[in-house]
Amino acid sequence: MRLNLRIWRQAGIAHKGEMVEYRVDDVSPDMSFLEMLDVLNERLTLAGEDPIAFDHDCREGICGMCSLTIDGEPHGPQRSTTTCQLHMRHYRDGDTITVEPWRAKAFPVVKDLVVDRSAFDDIIASGGYISAPTGSAPDAHATPVAKADADAAFENAACIGCGACVAACPNGSAMLFTAAKVVHLNALPQGQPERRDRVLNMVDTMDDAGFGGCTLTGECATACPKGIPLESISTLNREYLKASLKRA
């Protein structure tokens, strides 16, 4: 099939970007969205043009690198699907598709469709760890975990840190991401020693990075490819309030 693409091109952080139109013929419905861009990039490279820069790594929906806003939706129209797992069979011959980078103040565009998500790394560094003794691995049953806690931790640990939640939010808020990380570790016995510092530090870092506040629109949870629930934000707020009151 043939597709018309409108793609954001921007030479660098300090440059102004613009939408550029491309036509791609010979798109197979079995291709993934990124493979379709590979085909276009091969053509651009052969023609001596600058290929379109975009982030990707695993291409199997687990690493969180791919990050395209497709027709205004982070990770495109398929629910619970990363861009790399979006296949061209969801499009029809002759479709026009608009591709943009994540749009958020805290995620500046590095080049074309690549944004700088190191603000997420800062949030992780400020609390996304546990203290564990070194030495041989402990027995698997040494620390029992209640089933409900294990489920909550697992559900939130599914976050791949892609940033679609921020891109989808009208306020550019990172609450769903931060909530997923805090709930994951605070639910587990291994996360208890740093429980209070974790939530306070991660929220402080999130605020300092320039993300907006949360108005609970729920767009984040709709866009999230890993189904992190909106309720995690309520849990984050609870953890934050409890820790704040004890900080006094």
Partner: peptide
Amino acid sequence: SRTGKPRGG
């Protein structure tokens, strides 16, 4: 965003 579509939410 340049899509002309308003953001969700």
